[in-house]
Computed example of a mutant assay.
Amino acid sequence: MLKGKRELEKDEEILAPYAERSSLSQKREFPEEDHPYRLPFQRDKDRIVHSQAFKRLEYKTQVFVYSVGDHYRNRLTHTLEVAGVSRTLAKALGLNDDLTEAIALAHDLGHSPFGHAGQDALADIMRGFGGFEHNKQSLRVVQKLERKYPGFSGLNLCYATLQGIMKHGGDYAKSSANEERKENGPSLEAQIVDHSDEIAYSSHDIEDGLEKGLLKPESLLDVRIWKQNYLVVKEKYPNEKEEIILRTTYRAILNELISDLLTNTHANLEKHNILSPEDVRVAYRNKIPLVSFSKEMNEYRKELKSFLFENLYRHPTVSKMSDQGKEIIHLLFQYFLKHPEKIPLSYREREEEDGRYRIICDYVAGMTDRYAIEICKSEGIFGLPYSVLF
């Protein structure tokens, strides 16, 4: 049986009543003809995956820069893990998993090189010039910077997808999608992605920290969610190697976080009688949280985040990489301010409209770690010898 658009839309009839549906949420800034066998959110997902910005995520830092090793997460593998967790939760709750996955795949497209250190450096430079924040930059990427289609800039994603990428209604400029998002809040699909992002990095950053040797298994015993799962796994597999015990513990924590969020969110939807997307919007306006962990898990989650912040993200090795990343961002920005002719033409063409600071910001934010380092090498603009960095 060949399924066309009409048959695919009928498949959406089995979604929960509070889920977003393609037939009601397919508005785009630039109207397009329907595809014969792909629904609007499927097309959004495909456009994101085929974008230049998505490809570059492979060489952008999650916690460790690409040169540290091949088995640590990067911004792409993190994004894929977020999409996996999001899809699992969306399916179990009867939400639109195509929309959920599209939002997840796009959520970090605007991340700068060198992770949050790069973001901090650009935010410092852009203070007084419109600012920089990676969620807003993700929107700028999909609305303006990608140039692959005739008739419009960006990817022309559905408003529902764009609003899912927005956090707190954030954008550099006002738009109807932005204003609607501020008034009505995020869809359940968007809220799921937001929580899945935290679930993914909280669990996989433990794994990478232990793999790198920056975290010690014994120190994690002070974290309740780790200790409880570790001891259960240890008792269940007394003869297994420690490496297998640790990996099984990561998975157990991931499963516990997902299961708790799923169970508690379902209970919230039942409690508040959420029966439509409009009910979701009303709940937002009344400041009623729908997607949330249980009270106990929320405490465990905060404890884990605090541990990672103090013991991994502030570890001297990570801090050194972060400081070096910030220095590279500052050096690159100053170099391009002095040598605008070195900025690619596709960016310089927008200088009159956006200003020099913004076009340099767009260019530098889109770089991978590897490309940023190579530009510094090739142009001889390192403040320190290259061998000292990374």
Rank of each mutant, 00 (worst) to 15 (best):
K3P: 04
K5W: 04
E9L: 05
D11F: 00
E13G: 11
P17W: 13
P17A: 08
L24N: 07
S25F: 06
K27M: 11
P31Q: 06
P31D: 15
E33G: 13
E33Q: 08
E33M: 14
H35T: 02
L39G: 09
D46R: 08
I48M: 04
K60T: 00
T61C: 11
N74T: 10
R75F: 00
L76W: 05
T79F: 10
G84I: 01
G84C: 02
G84V: 03
T88A: 13
K91G: 10
L95C: 03
L99Q: 03
L99A: 14
L105S: 01
L109C: 01
L109Y: 04
H111Y: 14
G115R: 12
G115I: 05
G118R: 01
D124T: 13
R127S: 12
H134M: 13
Q137T: 12
S138E: 09
R140Q: 09
R140C: 06
K144G: 06
G151N: 04
S153K: 14
N156R: 07
N156A: 08
L157N: 02
L157S: 06
H168A: 10
H168K: 15
A177W: 00
E180I: 00
E180L: 06
N184K: 14
S187V: 00
L188R: 04
V193C: 14
E198M: 15
A200L: 14
S203P: 01
S203H: 05
S203E: 08
G209L: 12
L210C: 01
E211D: 08
E211F: 08
G213W: 12
L215R: 00
P217K: 05
L220I: 12
V223Y: 05
I225S: 07
W226F: 14
L231Q: 13
K236I: 00
K236V: 01
N239H: 06
R247E: 11
Y250S: 10
L254N: 02
N255G: 08
N255S: 15
N255D: 08
A267S: 15
R285D: 15
N286A: 03
I288A: 07
I288R: 07
P289W: 07
L290P: 01
F293E: 06
N298S: 07
N298P: 07
Y300G: 06
K302Q: 14
F309A: 03
E310F: 06
N311D: 11
R314V: 05
H315N: 11
S322V: 05
L332K: 10
Q334C: 13
L337N: 13
K342L: 07
K342D: 03
E349Q: 15
E351P: 03
E353H: 15
D354K: 13
D354V: 04
V364C: 01
T368F: 02
R370L: 11
E374M: 11
P385A: 11
L389T: 02
